[in-house]
């Protein structure tokens, strides 16, 4: 791994600090942007209302107002809650979210850590959030929270499988677990001998893409898979006892995870930070263009997630388990088989 960043020679620790700060800033900015764009405005448009309009131009500072409100709120512990674990749970969820971003590349070298097993690291980190949710539900000492947590546990584990199996198709096609290699494979690849736009796997691995996006919807516990938080029956599921800053942490991690999964999906299926085919842009320029490209792709994919979220009713948990085990997993397995056969044949 080269130690040059933007043409500067820096020590490893300096580079790491820059990368982490840039990463955290990017995550928070993107998350805030996504919340404003989709949760406030896009949804309001769908539901024929205006959404926030008072704080800032077109309500663009509404999120800051909301954060301010949450920070002011009393930090409530219920009487029977297990205080230490209750406080720890949001931290685990948030940590799993931020750790996901570690390996997502935004440019030729704009990545916090370029791991050889990048994609498996991402999936492993994202599943850590289940732990946080389960202990949140248990530590809340609330029946609704417990039921929500158990539902979340069952659901997230069930949808890990189609998620992983969908990724395997891409991994076979790219021949690598490293996300940079997958980006390169898409940028330089060819579709049956035609390389005009490279080989974004959304075209050749469209089945995997579909399964991946459905599984992501479920991993994020967004409607139609929001049984764990089902506000009309479990009120807010595992989050029911959380207020103030702890709820804010859940809120941030929910949307940051959405951005994270969207970034992973854009890396795996939409060509990541690279532009289609190699247009001969220098690595230095790509460090500026790349983050914009992947951010655009990720934001668009988050849009799909929210569009779905506000269009459908929710599945019952046995129905969503059936969907995972009876439809998504067999299809994902068939996809792996076909991909492997094609890979060998061509």
């Amino acid at each position: 791994m080269t130690h040059a960043l933007l043409g500067l020679e820096l020590a490893y620790w300096q580079q790491t600090i820059i990368r982490v700060l840039a990463g955290v800033t990017a995550i928070l900015l993107l998350t805030g942007g996504v919340v404003y764009l989709y949760l406030f405005k896009f949804v309001s448009f769908m539901q024929s209302r205006l959404g926030p309009m008072e704080a800032g131009p077109y309500g663009s500072l509404q999120l800051l107002a909301e954060v301010g409100k949450w920070l002011q709120k009393e930090d409530v512990f219920t009487e029977n809650s297990d205080r230490f674990i209750f406080g720890l749970a949001p931290a685990i969820v948030l940590a799993s979210t931020f750790l996901m971003f570690v390996v997502i590349p935004a440019g030729p070298n704009a990545v916090i850590a370029d791991l050889g097993t990048g994609i498996y690291y991402v999936l492993a980190m994202s599943s850590l959030s289940v732990l946080g949710i389960l202990i949140a539900g248990w530590a809340s000492a609330n029946k609704y929270a417990l039921m929500g947590a158990l539902r979340a546990g069952g659901q997230l584990i069930a949808y890990e499988l189609p998620l992983v199996l969908a990724v395997i198709g891409v991994v076979i096609a790219a021949g690598s677990l490293n996300l940079q290699d997958i980006v390169a494979a898409q940028s330089e690849g060819e579709i049956f001998g035609w390389g005009g736009i490279g080989n974004p796997y959304v075209l050749t691995q469209f089945v995997a893409f579909g399964i991946f996006m459905i599984a992501v919807q479920a991993e994020l516990a967004q409607t139609p898979f929001d049984m764990p938080v089902a506000e009309s029956e479990l009120v807010a599921g595992y989050m029911v006892e959380y207020t103030g800053i702890r709820f804010l942490v859940y809120f941030i991690s929910e949307f940051a995870t959405a951005v994270g999964f969207a970034a992973v999906a854009s890396t795996l299926f939409l060509g990541g930070w690279a532009l289609p085919a190699s247009w001969g842009i220098s690595d230095g320029a790509m460090h500026v263009i790349g983050p914009i490209v992947i951010a655009t792709k990720a934001v668009l994919l988050v849009g799909v997630v929210f569009w779905t979220r506000f269009s459908f009713p929710r599945f019952r948990e046995d129905q969503l388990q059936r969907l995972a085990w009876k439809f998504l997993i067999p299809i994902a397995l068939a996809n792996i088989l076909v991909t492997a056969v094609l890979k060998v044949a061509f």
Partner: peptide
């Protein structure tokens, strides 16, 4: 719709 999770 709301009770079934579709808030639109």
């Amino acid at each position: 719709g709301v009770q079934l999770g579709a808030i639109t």
